[in-house]
Design a protein around this nucleic acid. Structure first.
Lengths: 143, 143
DNA sequence: TAATATATGCAAGTAACTTGCATTTATGGT
DNA sequence: ACCATAAATGCAAGTTACTTGCATATATTA
């Protein structure tokens, strides 16, 4: 009898980019799939522990670096001293960061294609990626 | 005879925000006025030394924090582990960061007002500030 | 010019991240 | 199913950016 494995997709996804499908990597990748807002390494370690996956911080740092290199995830830098990560497969979208409660909301369809074209033609700069983040006060915290 | 002091403006600017006009602060502020692209603390320290101003890193960190608090400068976070600073008096503008040579070019007139309005009405998020950075290859490095 | 609030330097501390090396493990070939 | 091997992991030590506490020094104000 064949048992459908949880995270089967993750393993396949990992092998596709020639990374070994280890428990920690599968755990990180499926965690990112479950998570809506970009998370940092400390949070990743905590969430893994909840799933009974214990990992060394250094290992997760290395994993995240390899994921970035393989374009599985992208780095997000808010005005913090730590890096956050989210799945690169998510559409081009950006974030609203509440400076009061720390909530992170997504926004999509940022219409900066016009600006990008302008940059390409005027500055002859080849754009590989961009980051657009908004800082302010969320709906809840305005009350 | 009255000798016109260099950096007289900087001193005034500092007192306006009730910060004492010390040599290091004046040095940092006038350095930022001379500099076109956002700079980090290590660079600030080097440049100050050229001007015969020796300062402790901790002091400059504290100075930068107070400048940010007083809205004299703003923080810029590229995909680095360090913070850069630029004068807040500079117009709303953004940066093109070359991933090859590290050159930083400014762009102005980013037309994201439309997007901002959309965020305010749809998400009821009160925008205080935003950051928009482009990463890619500059004109020179494309050759 | 003296009083005082504030700035600075120094040293120690913290947090995020990296690196070297010995051990373990996933995987491809048999 | 097993073995060989390249790659992944854990641990410890190191690095870098940044912070903090405290004693000393200095800019401002009266």
């Amino acid at each position: 009898m064949v048992v459908l494995q949880k995270n089967h997709d993750c393993s396949a996804e990992l092998r596709e980019v020639s990374l070994k499908a280890t428990p920690i990597r599968i755990g990180v990748l499926s965690l990112l799939e479950e998570t809506t807002s970009p998370i940092d390494i400390a949070t990743i370690l905590k969430e893994l522990k909840k799933k009974k996956i214990v990992a060394d911080p250094a290992t997760v740092f290395r994993i995240m670096n390899s994921f970035v290199e393989k374009n599985l995830v992208r780095e997000i830098h808010f005005r913090e001293d730590k890096t956050r990560y989210e799945l690169a497969s998510k559409d081009d979208h950006h974030h609203l960061l509440c400076q009061e409660c720390g909530a992170i909301e997504d926004i999509s369809d940022c219409h900066i294609e016009g600006l990008e074209k302008e940059i390409i033609t005027k500055k002859h700069f080849l754009i590989k990626s961009h980051s657009l983040e908004f800082f302010g006060i969320c709906k809840n915290c305005q009350k």
